[in-house]
Design a protein around this nucleic acid. Sequence first.
DNA 1: TTTTATTTTTAGATTTGTCTAAAATTTATT
DNA 2: AATAAATTTTAGACAAATCTAAAAATAAAA
Lengths: 230, 230
Amino acid sequence: MAPNVKYSASKENHLKAIFHLQQEQGIVTTNALAAALQTRPASVTDMLKKLKDQKLLIYERYKGFKLNNEGRKAALQVIRKHRLWEYFLVKKLQFGWDEVHEIAEELEHIASKKLIDRLDAFLGFPEADPHGDPIPDSQGRLQMRRQINLAQLPLNKVAQVSGIASQTSEMLELLQYNHIRLGTRLEIKKKFPFDDSLEVKVRNRPPVTLSARVAKNVLVNDDEPITERR
Amino acid sequence: MAPNVKYSASKENHLKAIFHLQQEQGIVTTNALAAALQTRPASVTDMLKKLKDQKLLIYERYKGFKLNNEGRKAALQVIRKHRLWEYFLVKKLQFGWDEVHEIAEELEHIASKKLIDRLDAFLGFPEADPHGDPIPDSQGRLQMRRQINLAQLPLNKVAQVSGIASQTSEMLELLQYNHIRLGTRLEIKKKFPFDDSLEVKVRNRPPVTLSARVAKNVLVNDDEPITERR
DNA sequence: TTTTATTTTTAGATTTGTCTAAAATTTATT
DNA sequence: AATAAATTTTAGACAAATCTAAAAATAAAA
C-alpha cells in the first residue's frame, strides 16, 4: 500500500522539520516550526491543516502537533534521501562535508524510490552521513544512537563527535576552524559557569573555547570511545 | 556575469522544449510547444510572455518564436544536466537506458553548477548520454554530430545507431524488444514503399520490420562505421 | 475575395504556497 | 481573577502556473 506517494517539496520540508523538532521536544509548536523553516507562523498553520487533512499528523488547533505513523514514515524517507545524497556528494564528488547541505536540500525531493535504493547500493549501504547522522534504511528504520550534546559531557571524559545538530554553514565553518569534525575525539578541560562556555581540547591541538550555543549543537557518543585496538 | 541564474522547473522545461523544436523547425509555434509539453496552448502563451519579459526569447504574438542567445544558453545548461544525470543513472546506478528519462527530468532542475561540473568530472567528461545524444560542455558548447534518420539511410549500407529522437518509454521498449540500442550496427535490407516500412537487419539476429514512424526516430551516423581496427 | 477553419491570444478561474494584519485563544503577570 | 503578553489562527491578498471558454488574428478553401 502507498509505495510511491508523492508530497510537494514544501510538504516534505515541513514533515522533516517536524520530525526533527519532536525528537527533542515531543510536541511541536507553530512558532518553533516557523523558525526552523524560516517562514511565518500563519504559513505553518496553513500547511498544518493540509497535512492533517492528508492524515500525516495529529493536530488540534492551539494545542501543538506531532507526526502520526504515516507522517513519520514520510519524514524518514526524506531524511534517508537527504543523507544518502550528502554521502554521495562528499564521498564521490569530493565536496566538503560543510558545503553539501544546501544541495542535498534540493536532491532530497526527487521522488523515485528505485533511484534511492540504487544509490544506497552504489554507495555500499552507508550507515551514517558525513555529519555522522544515521541513514534510515529502505524500510525507514532508523538505527538510533545514544547521543548527548557537548554541554552535557562530564569534565575530562573523552568522547567522539557523532553529529552536528544545527548544520548552518556558519556553524560548520566555525567547527572546521577549530578542527572539530565528525569522529574527532575531544574532552572538556574546563567549564565556565558565567556563560556556560567550555574549554575543549582536541588531541595535538591547543585548547579552544566554545560558547554554550555551539556546545549544545555538537553531539558526541554517550559511551566510551575506542582508544586502543586489540 | 549571471553565473547561477535560477529559472523555475517549468520555465526550464519550456526552454528545453523550444530548443529541441527549433533544432528541427527553425521557428516554433504555440501548438507544437503545447503538444511537446503536454499542456494547453493558452498555458504556453502565458509562459511565452514571461520568457519574453525575461529576455530569453524572440516572440511577437501570432508570429511564432525562438530562443535568443540567452535563452539558448539556459536551455543548453538544462540539457547538459539532463544528459549527465542520465549517464550517471545508467553507468553508475545500473539503470537501463530506457528507464532513466523520467528521473533525469527531475534531476535536471537541481540548480548548483558546481554540482554538475563535479558530476561531469566524476563521470570522466562523457561526450554523449546513454541514448547517444551529445552532452554540452561546461560552457554550454554542444558538439554537433552528423546524424540522419534511419528512413534516410540507403539500402544495404551499414550504419551505427547514434541517437533516438523520440524518447517515450513506449518507443524505447519497442526498440529494446528488437535489439536496437545505442551503438547497434544495422542495415536496411528492404524498403516497402506502400507504407514506407523497413526491413532492418542487426548482426546475429533475424530481420525485423520497423514502421516509418519508428524509422524516422532512429538516428544513425552519416558516415561509415569502423568495422576493422588497425 | 468572402467565408470557413485553424491557430493563437485574452479574460477570468483555480490550486498551491506564501504573506500581512487582525482576531481568537492560551499563557503569564500583576 | 483580571489584565497584559505571547501564541496561534483566521481572513483576505498575492504570485506562479495552470486551465476553460470566448475573442482575435491568421491561414485555407470555396
